[in-house]
């Protein structure tokens, strides 16, 4: 499993499109920094087919006032959860 880290808003940048082309079925996506806006209902439509493999960093959501605005399908993890995701991954690829 590859962990893909996205730190760009899908509303402002198209890097998520490159990320999607570089993913296979078991891969996971962690949204951090401005990338957490992809966890909104309008955001996940831009990241189709990832569903339950989509994670977002809690503290970056909270800082932006977006915690309560996430789509329910998004897994919210704290920084320890971020570390755990990297433990489980064969490699980590960052998209920015």
């Amino acid at each position: 499993m590859v962990l893909h880290i996205l730190n760009r808003s899908p509303f402002a940048s198209r890097v998520h499109e490159d990320m999607l082309r570089a993913m296979v079925n078991e891969d996971r996506v962690l949204l951090i920094e401005d990338g957490v806006s992809a966890a909104l209902k309008a955001g996940i439509t831009l990241l189709p087919t990832i569903d339950e493999r989509l994670y977002a960093l809690k503290e970056d959501l909270e800082a932006r006032g977006l915690s309560q605005r996430c789509d329910p399908c998004v897994n919210i993890v704290d920084v320890d959860g971020f570390v755990a995701l990297t433990e489980q991954a064969d490699k980590v690829v960052s998209w920015f």
Binding site: N7, E33, D34, D80, F82, V83, A84, E87, F96
Partner: peptide
């Protein structure tokens, strides 16, 4: 940009899980 903050936060959390 937030990159340095994110990296530092991550680095400080690593020992919580034995890394």
């Amino acid at each position: 940009q937030q990159a340095a903050h994110s990296a530092l936060r991550f680095a400080e959390a690593l020992p919580h899980r034995g890394h």
